[in-house]
Design a protein around this nucleic acid. Structure first.
Length: 465
RNA sequence: AAGCUCUUCGUCUAGUGGUUAGGACGUUACCUUUUCAAUGUAAAAACACGGGUUCAAUUCCCGUAGAGCUUACCA
């Protein structure tokens, strides 16, 4: 039988870190076992679902490169099918109408809580043979078995057992004429022949009821795998302050999708001592059976480190357009400076994100924002005048403009003046970049371009005098 | 309140009835270097607690504590 997994987000928000990892694990499990991955949008909650959120999820999936064989399916387009199934259940006596108002249900719960009981529906209408009546509060409830155990072997949490006494008769069909989530998922997962349900562990509690539904419908129960949560750095539930923002903000912040995926795959899963996984390696090594049981915290530092590893390993040409884009975002024109590809090579060991890379490269594309206070005081001193002037002259005269030529000019100058390279490099660096930290000095000068380099040296010399 | 679940360095994790409890991020040194990085080397850093079982428990069992999830006509 073909393995089929699905990612089934509800479009009430964007695709966040937790959702992205669930999607990744579903995708990996399908890929690893040569199966199919399906995307299904659970939009039965019409109040909270929005088309923007649907688009945000689709965009997030696309950016991460988690392609699906089927979908997106939309639950709102399958209402006829749910109606059909609920009617079957009704006809078979496996479901019934109930008429309590919300207030009555709330009161029931409150009373049970007060008695220290687990709150649940008391089944008042379950075995009443009343004629069906029209009522604004009319819902359809499932006849959950009254006794016996419900057992399942969760692929990450192991064996979980429930007693049917703990469960109540869940609502399948709301009074507003819509199916409920617990009903729609089961119908969908059956119809879509899902073999492995991989989802967040906030769903473990729904699983026994769903299993009962599968059985009432005479369907084969799929395998379940409940993934632990991802927590914020403080161990609290992920909030907007942490990572509960759209994965697309990671794009905005200069992360590579493969780096994010690599980070996420290791959050709750590991394979020996390996930290870096290409997509192919992930697919090869991954199994939900090896996923951890405990919740994990999101650690931005490690993501940043991984992102840099990916930037260093990437073909510079593939990063160039991304860097150009980030330069534009901070108001710079990539055409006003060196080829982004060359900047990538110079800067990838000095930046952990593309945003950082763009920021640290501003001085090659736009005017100097000013000199770093301490660097200026230390290096733009009277002692720098002679070397700067000499270098300026030589740079103005050389016929070629490349790293080797610049390097030659600098070492010649050092020799001419009988001083160490540092005495030339540091003042020059401050002159060109405004700070004492940059790539090697020949590259730094080369990337500035001859005209800009000469202008900056002139400006620095003027400052001295 | 009840049901379900979780607990190894600060963080992500490996691991086993007998290990110097391993790796990675981060941190701190050192090396390198004209700066800053990157790389390399090294160091500090963990089995939540209490009882059992056992010759021996981080590992198995039971409690305690802490944390999470669910108890919706949300998903």
């Amino acid at each position: 039988m073909t393995v089929r997994t699905r990612f089934a987000p509800s479009p009430t928000g964007y695709l966040h870190i937790g959702g992205a990892r669930t999607a990744l694990y579903c995708w990996l499990e399908a890929r690893h076992r040569g199966g199919e991955f399906i995307l299904r949008v659970e939009d039965t909650d019409r109040e909270r679902s929005t088309p923007e959120a649907v688009q945000a999820i689709l965009d997030g999936m696309a950016w991460l490169g988690l392609e699906y064989e089927e979908g997106p399916y939309y639950q709102t387009r399958r209402f006829d099918r749910y109606r059909e199934v609920v009617d079957q259940l009704l006809a078979a006596g496996k479901a019934y109408y109930a008429y309590e108002t919300r207030e009555e249900l709330d009161a029931m719960r409150a009373e049970q809580m007060a008695q220290g009981l687990k709150p649940r529906y008391n089944g008042y209408y379950r075995d009443r043979d009343e004629p069906v009546r029209d009522d604004p509060n009319r819902v359809i409830r499932f006849k959950n078995p009254k006794s016996g155990p419900v057992v399942f072997d969760d692929r990450v949490k192991g064996r979980i057992e429930w007693r049917n006494e703990e469960l109540d008769d869940l609502i399948l069909w709301r009074s507003d004429g819509h199916p409920t989530y617990n009903f729609a998922v089961v119908v969908d997962d059956i119809d879509m022949r899902i073999t492995d349900v991989i989802r967040g562990d906030d769903h473990v509690n729904n699983t026994p009821r769903q299993i009962n539904l599968y059985e009432a419908l005479g369907a084969r129960v799929p395998q379940f795998a409940h993934l632990p949560m991802i927590l914020g750095p403080d161990g609290q539930k992920l909030s907007k302050r942490h990572g509960a923002v759209s994965v697309l903000v990671y794009q905005d912040e200069g992360f590579l999708p493969d780096a994010l995926l690599n980070y996420l795959v290791r959050l709750g899963w590991s394979h020996g001592d390996q930290e870096i996984f290409s997509r192919a390696q992930m697919i090869d090594a991954f199994s939900v059976d090896d996923v951890n049981v405990a919740a994990a915290r999101f650690d931005l530092d490690k993501l940043r480190w991984l992102n840099q590893q990916y930037m260093i390993a990437a073909e510079p040409g593939t990063l160039a357009p991304l860097l150009a884009d980030h330069l534009r975002r901070i108001g710079l024109n990539p055409a006003d400076g060196p080829a982004p590809e060359e900047v990538v090579v110079a800067m990838r060991e000095r930046a952990q994100t593309l945003v950082e890379m763009a920021e640290k490269s501003r001085h090659w594309y736009g005017p100097l924002a000013g000199y770093d206070e301490a660097s200026q005081r230390k290096h733009l001193t009277e002692a720098a005048r002679e070397p700067l002037a000499l270098v300026r002259d030589k740079l103005a005269q050389v016929s070629a403009w490349d790293v080797a030529t610049v390097n030659q000019v600098l070492s010649d100058s050092a020799q001419d003046l009988s001083i160490g390279m540092g005495k030339i490099a540091q003042p020059l660096r401050v002159a060109i970049t405004g700070s004492a930290a940059s790539p090697s000095i020949d590259v730094t000068v080369y990337l500035a371009g001859r005209q800009r380099a000469l202008e900056r040296i002139d400006a620095a010399l003027e400052r001295l005098g």
